[in-house]
């Protein structure tokens, strides 16, 4: 393939690369939407079938920890965006510190999630093994907690993978002289990171809010 080295051409090629990566990432996110969509479908079907059991399950979830976690994720999205802006301005130090903050906040989210999980294990509210031996829980509550673990688990897995990729990006970028050339990578990854936030925005009301009053 021939390519001339004019400035205009290279700008065009950079724009083309960005558009290609952007399209690719959005298509990937479309597939992710259907992935979580299957889980939400199961959730809605059983909420429809067992409204009281699901309400009881929601009440068991810690609202304060959930709210804090939601805000943490949104803060991480803010830092991700700031990191990208700084990179576009070729401010390497600022960009990397924002990205590190983003990863740190992601880890904090996971930390709080593990705290919630351990609370549940203590109360035997986990699927498999001895499940809720003490009380007579309504039918469907077991399904609620099963779905709770699967949905937040799949979400957490996506977050973990995101943190891993972010760590790798931070490592690679810290060894590059100029951050400005890598904005396409950051921008494309940023779409994925915001998407994780997006999924949580719908997970949060489903698992922590809806039906607190039955």
């Amino acid at each position: 393939m021939t390519s001339s080295a004019s400035l205009e051409d290279s700008a065009l090629m950079a724009e083309n690369r960005k558009r290609t990566a952007e399209l690719g990432m959005w298509i990937f996110l479309a597939s992710e939407a259907l992935l979580f969509g299957g889980l939400f479908l199961a959730y809605f079907v059983y909420r429809y079938s067992f409204p009281q059991a699901f309400a009881a399950g929601v009440r068991e979830n810690d609202l304060i920890l959930g709210t804090i976690n939601t805000i943490i994720l949104m803060l991480s999205a803010l830092f991700m965006t700031l990191g990208i802006l700084a990179a576009e301005n070729d401010n390497k130090k600022s960009s990397l510190s924002c990205l590190i903050m983003t990863a740190f906040l992601g880890l904090t989210f996971l930390g709080i999630k593990s705290l919630e999980y351990s609370h549940k294990f203590q109360h035997h509210l986990y699927p498999g093994g001895v499940f809720m031996p003490e009380k007579n829980w309504p039918v469907g509550e077991r399904i609620f907690f099963g779905l709770y673990f699967v949905m937040t688990g799949v979400h957490a897995l996506h977050l973990l993978v995101g943190i891993g990729i972010l760590a790798w990006l931070i490592f690679v970028l810290s060894h590059k002289p100029r951050v400005r050339d890598s904005t396409v990578w950051l921008y494309t990854f940023g779409l994925y990171w915001h998407y994780i936030d997006l999924i949580w925005i719908f997970l949060f009301p489903s698992l922590y809010l809806l039906g607190r009053f039955g």
Binding site: L63, G66, T67, T70, I71, M74, F204, P205, L209, R212
Partner: peptide, 13 residues
């Protein structure tokens, strides 16, 4: 966004 989160949590109560 944070404000909306606090609002929705509050309303749920």
């Amino acid at each position: 966004l944070a404000g909306l989160t606090l609002a929705t949590s509050g309303i749920a109560l």
